[in-house]
């Protein structure tokens, strides 16, 4: 089912899917770029997402949500992966606190897809692009068997 889709069509589906996610809308995420297994998603600074009110630094959980979404979008846009996926595992390393007031941007690359698993890495940056805020590595489902419905992937 997925092999017939053009890269443009896959990117469009991934974009529509990502922007329709209620939690992504709640966090104000915008998809900047997507295609061929790569995705960039950005999230504005918002006081509601602060983890430490003494410093105004964004909570790690909000960064995790951004990374997870971006990794999922990268998988969905990969030519060899099905247009739907679910996270199997995700590891996030926090390099430094994001600078308060600055937007956070995640860039994800789906670098390998097998018959059942997609492997992804991502980086989260604030406006100082030379010093990453966090990095992530993850494994996602890539079950392209049309006899299985996408929602069975993790159920």
């Amino acid at each position: 089912m997925t092999t017939d889709l053009t890269p443009e069509k896959k990117a469009e589906i991934a974009r529509g899917f990502t922007e329709a996610i209620p939690h992504c809308r709640a966090l104000g995420m915008t998809l900047v770029d997507i295609g061929e297994g790569e995705a960039t998603i950005t999230m504005p600074y918002d006081e509601r997402f602060v983890g430490d009110p003494r410093t105004g630094v964004i909570h790690g959980g909000a960064v995790s949500a951004l990374m997870d979404t971006c990794c999922g979008a990268a998988v969905m846009s990969h030519p060899d992966a099905p247009a739907i996926t679910a996270t199997i595992d995700l590891r996030i390393d926090y390099m430094r606190p994001a600078t308060p007031g600055q937007r956070i941007t995640a860039k994800a690359t789906c670098y390998n897809v097998t018959r059942s698993v997609a492997f992804v890495r991502a980086v989260a940056l604030d406006e100082d692009e030379n010093r990453p805020v966090a990095t992530a590595t993850g494994a996602f489902t890539a079950d392209g068997d049309p006899r299985r419905k996408s929602n069975e992937a993790l159920s």
Binding site: P22, A26, G60, G61, S64, D68, A86, I92
Partner: peptide
């Protein structure tokens, strides 16, 4: 809550929400 949804078709809680919940 509605705003926690990550997959509107299932629907399912967003993986990032799960991550944030566990980290918290």
């Amino acid at each position: 809550a509605e705003k926690l949804i990550g997959n509107p078709m299932l629907p399912a809680i967003h993986g990032g929400v799960t991550a944030a919940f566990l980290e918290t």
